[in-house]
């Protein structure tokens, strides 16, 4: 049993992800089933906001700014900057699928789909 555990634990999973180009993200996306929006600009910046909290667009206070990059083909990395405090919070999602109208993102605690708005 212990050996089995060690053998299993010693195996590495290969990266089988897709190759995503940054240009595929440019634009505005809405998290499916929510009022949460994400924008991706060509300069590598963006905003996310949630109209459910009364934040109606990216210029409203409460809209969270971030910088974003893609690495390893499908790793979408965000570095969030607060309204008043720094950009220490980092989140990386895995893009599992992307098309002109949809994008699927995955993180440790779940998957969700974003629909292109613009």
């Amino acid at each position: 049993m212990a050996l089995g555990v060690l053998l299993f634990a010693g195996c590495n999973r290969d990266n089988e992800g897709i190759e995503v180009s940054e240009s595929q993200l440019y634009g505005l996306w809405q998290k499916q089933g929510t009022q949460e929006y994400w924008s991706y600009r060509e300069d590598g910046t963006g905003h996310t906001w949630d109209r459910a909290d009364g934040i109606m667009n990216e210029t409203d206070s409460g809209s969270v700014a971030y910088s974003w990059t893609i690495s390893n083909g499908d790793q979408l990395r965000h570095r969030f900057s607060g309204t008043n405090i720094g950009d220490m919070v980092v989140r990386t999602y895995t893009i599992t699928a992307i098309s002109d109208s949809e994008m699927e993102r995955e993180e440790e605690i779940g998957n969700y789909k974003l629909l292109r708005v613009e």
Partner: peptide, 8 residues
Amino acid sequence: KMSTLLGA
């Protein structure tokens, strides 16, 4: 407003 929460 959880959509705005950032912290450490």
